[in-house]
Structure formats: C-alpha cells, structure tokens
Amino acid sequence: MSATLQYLVNGLVYSGVIVLASIGLSLVYSIRGFANFAHGDTMTVGAYAALLAFSGTSALLVGGGNATAGGGLAGLLGGPAAFVVALAVGMVVAAIVAIASERLVYSKLDTSAVGLLIASIGVAFVMRAIVQILFGNIQQAYALPRSGPLPGFGALGVAVTARDVVVVVATIALVAALHVLLQYTSLGRQMRATSDNRDLARASGIRTNRIVDATWAIGAGLAGAGGVFLGLSLRLQPLMGFNLLLVVFAAVILGGIGSVYGAMIGGLVIGVIHELVPALSTYGVPINAQYANTVAFLIMVAILLLRPRGIMGEAV
C-alpha cells in the first residue's frame, strides 16, 4: 500500500510539471490555432534561464562563493530566496522568447496550422541549439541542498522531499492564479472571447494582437515554470523539455485541445498514470517503468475512444 502511495506522490510531482506545460500548450492552441512543437524547448529555456539567474542571484545575495549548503540567513538568501528569483526569471525569459518567436516567425508566415506547426519545429531546433551552445550537453542542477525525506510524511510511509512539496504547492498556486485571471479579470475574459471567436472579438473592440501576446507570455511563462520544476526534481539537460513534449501532447489531447481546464485534468491524469505504472508490478502485473509512456498513451487512446474530443470537449 505505502509503495503505491509513494508512486502516487511521485505522480503528483510529475503531474505538476505536465500540468504547467499542458496549460500553456492548450492556451496557445486555443488562441493561435496551432500545436506548438517548440513548447517543450520553451520549458528548457525557462529551466536554463533560471539556472543562470540562480547562480547569479545567490552569488550576489551572499557575496560570492557557494553558501547554499550553509544555514542561517546566508543559506536562505543563497538558497530558497535565490530560487524564487530564479523561478521568476525563468518564467519571464520563457515568455519573452515565446513572444519573440511569434513576432519574428509565426506572425510573418501566411500559412496554415500545419505550416505553423512545422515552423515551430524549426523554432524548437534553434532554441535547443542556443541552449546547447551556451550551456553544453552535460547535466546540471540547481545548487540547492538536497534534503532527505521530510519527517512529517514518514508516518504515512512515504518519502516526500522539500522539493516535492515546492513543486506541488507552486503548481497549485500557479493554476489557481491562472483560474482567477481567466475567470475574474478583464484580460482573462478577453482571452476567452478571443479564443471563442476572433473576428467577433475584434468586432467588439478587443485588440486581439495584444491578447495573442499575453497568451504567449502566460502559456510560455507556465511552461518555463514547469521546466524549472522539472530541473528541480531531476536535473537539467538540453533535451529535458523536448523529451517531455509527447507526454504533454497526450495530456492536452486527453483533456481536449484548446481547453485550459481540460489540460489541467489531462496533465494530472497522465502524470499520475505515468508514475503509477511501476506500481502495477506490486500487484503482480509484470511491467516496469520503461513502459510508463506506452501505458499512459494507451489509456489516452482508450479515453479518446469514449470521448473523441477529450475530457473537456472544446470549450476553454
């Protein structure tokens, strides 16, 4: 039982990353109308921008040296506080890169959704190449101490680290913030209207170009956060985001492409299933983690057979 619970915890952490990435992919699809294959690499860019910001900030805050392993104020400034700054930088840089790709590439192309999709593959290659040139192909990590399991969860028989808690809590906070933005602010209303019917949105006076920019910024910012959390719970490497892209697509399609709330649910479901696959062996099903993607995709296909437009249909 506790083994299953452990897989579930791992699933929630993984889901957090998938959910953040899925929302952005679906949001951009809903307003821009194409599947953005550069989305995974946008995550990577966010993660690496945060890496740079993290070392810069911790050096600045504690006056050089690596004090992150230390305790006290220096430890806080060099560690968690610097990480918050780095997260923000990662999100902002991802947003800027996405807006730049819209301005420099997508908006210049008079082509179909398929043409834009192919263009986004090109954009993805460029982003990846830049990351590889700047940071090399080696694995890296945020220089934060890796604490052991938190004592509070020990009673439940599961190992939960501070990093796990950060990822899950921050994901929930970001998702909640997005919900408030979409439902209760003028920008959110205009985003939903633009996604519903762009011509009517323009006829109503919405400056849809600005809404498209805002959508890219929010979608890529969330992807950037997902990338940072992926780097936090595992390691950073230039293919980290791209390798996740298929799973993110599965989550988005499962939720109903174009639907933000569908992406949240799809991301959660796919993430948890993905990590629960190894748990099957404890129930006598001889299958291991290697097949997690396969099982997640099979379940996606099964759900789509029942609901062809995904869990949340078409609505945002």
């Binding site: 209303r189 205009q190 939903r192």
Partner: peptide
C-alpha cells in the same frame, strides 16, 4: 460568444 455568459458577452 457561446462559451461566455450573457453578462460576459456584454462586458466584452
């Protein structure tokens, strides 16, 4: 805007 409420349509 079919996916928006009546009040939201007016605000838009």
């Amino acid at each position: 805007f079919g996916s928006l409420t009546i009040a939201e349509n007016l605000k838009i």
